[in-house]
Design a protein around this nucleic acid. Sequence first.
DNA 1: CCAAAAGTGTTGGTTTTACACCCATGG
DNA 2: CCATGGGTGTAAAACCAACACTTTTGG
Lengths: 209, 209
Amino acid sequence: MDVRVTVDIVIFTILKGRLKVLLIRRGIPPFKGEWAIPGGFVLESESLDQAARRELAEETGVTDVFLEQLYTFGDPDRDPRARVITVSYYALITSDRALNAGTDAAEARWFSADRPPRLAFDHSSILRTARRRLEGKLEYTDVGFQLLPPAFTLTELQGVYEAILGRELDKRNFRRKILQTGLLVELSEKKRIGPQRPAQLYGFSPRSA
Amino acid sequence: MDVRVTVDIVIFTILKGRLKVLLIRRGIPPFKGEWAIPGGFVLESESLDQAARRELAEETGVTDVFLEQLYTFGDPDRDPRARVITVSYYALITSDRALNAGTDAAEARWFSADRPPRLAFDHSSILRTARRRLEGKLEYTDVGFQLLPPAFTLTELQGVYEAILGRELDKRNFRRKILQTGLLVELSEKKRIGPQRPAQLYGFSPRSA
DNA sequence: CCAAAAGTGTTGGTTTTACACCCATGG
DNA sequence: CCATGGGTGTAAAACCAACACTTTTGG
């Protein structure tokens, strides 16, 4: 049987200390006017990963970001028009680059990842799946760093973890644990942004260091 | 673009204390005569999960087993004939039911999951992905129990863990840890199979017990 | 009585959690 | 000098890893 195949990409970022997801408003039926996860059809000559990167670039203008396949959704009636299965992905983009996204022609906005609006198709399931995966991977991978610019403070990093986990963490324990992974390098600059002690900046050290 | 969609199922079991995978020999080109992971096309009216369960039943005769979606492979040239993407799954079947599988018309055999033969298409990647997923899930889920019949001894369970992890475990530590999960219930019978002390049989207690 | 696998506790080291005060700066 | 967020250590509890002998049975 021949079917149409799309990729849909759950794009996360952190804004104002909250986990956000990028949604676009559909301009055509079905689900016209409703919010949806960005995506599109896989082209003849490209791999699934390439299709996802292309769509991500089209939607946000960003390249070279964390992108990982999530799950494939293929219920026969998930699209009322035809048999369409979608290979979902999730991407993490840094807060500094996030602001440029969602300013394109199509209406696009950042929404709370925890209280999203009603979504088209089965996109609520896709988002929930992405949310769970991100939370799960936070503790045993370095995904958390992918949401911050190249130089960041430990307080900012802790904010990312708290936004994803949805609970507060102990400052001293967090710092000890994250530093002893050896994944962070202390940069020579400090961040001074107000009437307070300047914060040490850190960078993400290359993997097998 | 329209593509063909298949499901491929990596079917694991434990035989003689070793992790095995079921492979079938291809009767038609391409890759005629080579070993491959069982699978087939998704039908018009079925979901991906249903397709996987159907193929699994056709291949092994078993139903009601652990089955989980793994990853979707879709490189443009992974099948030389046409654009075919495959949604891969992995399944775990208990050793007592494993023996009936692989005796059908098509040539099918159990192979070592760690030293499989050369495989058709990108099936080696699929198998590696499944192998990693299984190993990863062993420690934080109950997948290990899915490979044993309803009544089993702790030594048998430990054997499953050792086969998947590829290393030996300490008997006392293993027993303590597995028992304190609360997932096992002591059955009233014991297993007596030779000139030795009979072993207590355990069952898998329903989840939220 | 012997061979075979079943069963059982303790100790030392490591990891995790809980918790409160001083520091550096800008205004 | 004060308000703001940055930065630091310690003690108790939980968890993990290493390790050897006794028990029950069939033949």
